[in-house]
Amino acid sequence: MEDDPVNRSATLDAPLSLAGAGEAREDTVDRVRALDRFLAGVERRALRIARMALRDPAEAEDAVQDAMIRLVRHYGRRPEGEWRPLFYRILGNRITDLQRRHRVRRAVFAFWSGGGEARAPDPLEAAIDPRGRPDEAIEGEELLARIATALASLSRRQREAFLLRNFEGLDIAQSAVAMGCSEGSVKTHYFRAMQALEEALPECRT
């Protein structure tokens, strides 16, 4: 399974560690330091992306920590250049799992509460009209909140493509690894995402 670094269920039997002595131990120490540097470099962006996707700060932090642990344990031996797309692949899978769990919870809640749309009111959505104020230029957190709302209406793949390419700055090849699809698919999803966002955010046309 180690040859399938993007398989969510992969459980690798050769975690980084366990250097016996000397050279190998030095290598492990260097790896730990490199991993620490890498994680320090991506953690805040990853958390922001997880928050946008999950809309739950605590769950977002859990997802990021889980991704950190999995990357270190299962992929720490991989070349350093592979860590970033792998990390986002792990994080993306974790986010998808949590979102799926939310959907199931909502469905169960809807059933027990007498049916109907059980979607809990989202304070972000309630506060912001994603298509509002087209004549006004918006920036900063407000723009980000509107983007988050608009992203929620996209398909998962389009959302991932946008977040990875535009926010995290992964190139096409890295995004393909992170999303587990072809580079052509990344381009398509990204373009569709941009089209939809451009349509949903007229205030950004100015």
């Binding site: 975690p15 980084l16 560690s17 366990l18 250097a19 016996g20 002595a21 131990r25 492990t28 120490v29 790896r31 730990v32 991993l35 620490d36 994680l39 320090a40 953690e43 805040r44 958390l47 932090e61 990021v64 920590q65 950190m68 642990i69 990357l71 270190v72 344990r73 720490g76």
Partner: peptide, 19 residues
């Protein structure tokens, strides 16, 4: 986040202690 990172890499450090 720093604590989460320390937790993630700490597992390796603990294993390394077995050296």
């Amino acid at each position: 986040l720093a604590r989460a990172r320390a937790t993630a890499t700490g597992g390796l450090k603990r294993r390394r202690i077995a050296g």
